[in-house]
Design a binder for these strands. Sequence first.
RNA 1: GCCCACAUAGCUCAGCAGGAUAGAGCGACUGCCUCCUAAGCAGUAGGCCAGAGGUUCGAAUCCUCUUGUGGGCACCA
Length: 542
Amino acid sequence: MNLKKNLQKLLTEAAQKAGFAPRFVVISSSKDEKHGDLSSNLPLAMAKAAKKTPMVIAESIIGYFEKNEKIIADVFPSPPGFINFKINPSYYQSLIREIIKAGNAYGQSELGKNKTANVEFVSANPTGPLTVGHGRNAVLGDTVANILENHGYKVTREYYFNDAGRQMRILGDSVEARYREIVDGSSVFPEDGYQGEYIRDIARKIQEEHGNNIKKGHSVFRKSAENDIFDEIKKSLKNLGIHHNKFSNEKTFYTSGAVEKVTSDLRNKGLIYEEEGATWFKTTELGMDQDRVLIKSSGEPTYRLPDIAYHINKVERDFDLIIDILGSDHVATYPDVVAAVKALNYKTDHFNVMIHQFVTLLKSGQKVKMSTRKADFVTLEELVNDVGGDVVRYFFIMRSMNSHLNFDLDLAADQSEKNPVFYLQYAHARICNIIKRGEGLEKDFMVDYDPSLLTHLAEIELLKTMEQFPEVMATAQNKLEPQDIANYLQDLAARFHRFYVDCRVITHDNDLSAARIALITATKIVLANGLKVLGISAPERM
RNA sequence: GCCCACAUAGCUCAGCAGGAUAGAGCGACUGCCUCCUAAGCAGUAGGCCAGAGGUUCGAAUCCUCUUGUGGGCACCA
């Protein structure tokens, strides 16, 4: 049973009996003890319509409020017109059994039961190693997928890449140029070529495997590069605990005829015209500010066309939720694709795009401009090796995706020992250690305990925080904002550390020890469940 | 010029389906280990929540404008 929902119901009933017609009843946690444990602004919100002062309304509603003594100890108004609830400590104390019983399931829900979701993320074309910038996308996507799974969704983690376009051709040309360089010193390096050292490595490997006489323009250059780079990308993701279970590429949409179908369908809708040798998509007709090219005068489609086919494909696979995680450089492109899918009468209201802002890298106080082409980047691999996967994941999750964040590499390496993620993990490790000590004692603490012994303020505060966990998880799913969980866990860990300092767990008082071991066991469960969703390890010792 | 996002402590950032005194980490300064891990706790200093209007009983939070930052406005993706 959910405390806030329960109060909402009781409060609504009381307000109705008092002759009001409340619409939205908001219950929030009180920051100040003077205002009880929870409070509602209902009288303030209703004052205007009811033409009464908030305090009068508050008194009147409270007069009709039927409080369940087992849960609610007191209901009282406070100026300018809040209704405050004092919760019976026994309610919080009783949570311990509930949490221990639920175990891994505490914080999970069935909001997504029998539903499917597709989360497309990373989706970097295999032209080079993943950068720190991709890391943000990767961690965000994987965590969103975790959140959905936590609520019962069956989630497909998907990676889409363009393997037919210009970028991959340039990649092949770049490799071939390096190959010629090695074989006979001749080389005309493409103007837009990829300059990274990894291109040379791939060329060298090709030379070793296939010898010196590969025909000009042979597909092995592009193909090998794609394979090798993809292997590296997958490895980098694996280091962060990220695994995609579906890879889609644009080529399949050409061979399947899906791309062709998009063009003809749009043409039938009158949304296509030819001009200056190119094929244009009449996006202005769909409310956009300019038309876009679908097929260049060279005959080569732009990324837009296969993207549309791909999104239609996702719709046809019949997910309940389709999520795209994109960097802010793609803000403008997404609406065109959705508009096309919608114009072709496919469902799009289950689309959900999450745009994250860029990561600005600072090295020795200098901005590092990231460009895969110029090989001017810090790889995700390097970063993970430097500070560890847990730190990287936490760093990207603790920030809102809307913030353009500065990542100071020197500082990150320097402070990795003091990183906030250790604060959470340390709380978990501390708990494990205490529990282990408890096991060595004669009494079997976990079997028999009396939670009503937990009356210290630090204990109640800790319990109150744990009570909020299911709601935090539900909200994170609703808003698709993983950082809510990170913030919550930070708060939970802080409550625990305070408790640890104030209340010794294992003492000569066996009864109190038993109750406290139960309390920290519950805390451990909540911490571990939260960390698991964030994809961060919960170490037993540090 | 147009579009999207952002602007909160010295630095990096939380808080934003409006609520009661604005938070954390790092950095600076004080205390706290004969006691379950001090990777911790308690405290001091540090803020006109970019600026100006507006909506509201109430605004860091919503709206408008200004300024500044990032990203976009390709027959690149």
